[in-house]
Computed example of a mutant assay.
Amino acid sequence: MNEQDANTLLEAGILQQNNHDFEAADRAYRRVLELDPQNKYAWYNLGVMAHGDGRVADARADYDNALKIDPVFQSALYNESLLLESSDPDRAVELLKSLIDAEPKAGTAHLHLGRIWAQKDRDDDAAKEFRRALEDDPSLRSQVPEEFR
Rank of each mutant, 00 (worst) to 15 (best):
Y78W: 04
E135F: 05
S86K: 13
R55I: 03
G13I: 06
E146W: 03
D26V: 06
L95R: 11
D124Y: 04
G107T: 13
I69K: 05
P37G: 03
R31I: 06
K105I: 05
E23M: 07
Q74T: 15
P89K: 00
A24W: 15
D62V: 04
V93L: 10
F73H: 15
K68A: 09
F130W: 06
L95S: 05
L9E: 07
I14V: 13
L35Q: 04
R141P: 06
E135Q: 13
S98C: 03
L96P: 08
N2W: 00
V144H: 01
L111C: 00
D137T: 04
Q119E: 15
L9R: 07
A57G: 07
P71G: 15
L10H: 02
Y78F: 10
D62R: 14
E23F: 09
L46S: 01
Q143P: 00
R149Y: 02
L77E: 07
R31C: 03
W117P: 01
R131V: 01
H51S: 08
Q16F: 10
E80F: 00
R31E: 14
E103P: 09
L33A: 04
N19V: 01
K128Q: 12
D137A: 03
D53V: 02
S98Q: 15
D53T: 10
P104I: 03
E147H: 12
D136C: 13
R115C: 04
P37S: 07
N45V: 02
Y63D: 11
A50S: 08
H110C: 00
P104A: 00
S87L: 02
S81E: 07
E34P: 10
N39F: 15
D26S: 05
P145V: 10
L46H: 04
G52Q: 13
L10V: 04
P145N: 05
W43H: 14
L99R: 12
D125F: 14
E85L: 12
P104F: 06
H20M: 05
D21Y: 08
N45Y: 03
S81D: 09
S142W: 06
H51C: 02
V48P: 08
E80Q: 14
A76Q: 10
G114P: 06
R31S: 06
R31W: 12
L35F: 09
A102W: 04
E23T: 12
L9I: 15
R141E: 11
E147D: 06
F130C: 09
E103T: 13
P145E: 04
R30V: 02
V93R: 15
P71Q: 15
A6S: 13
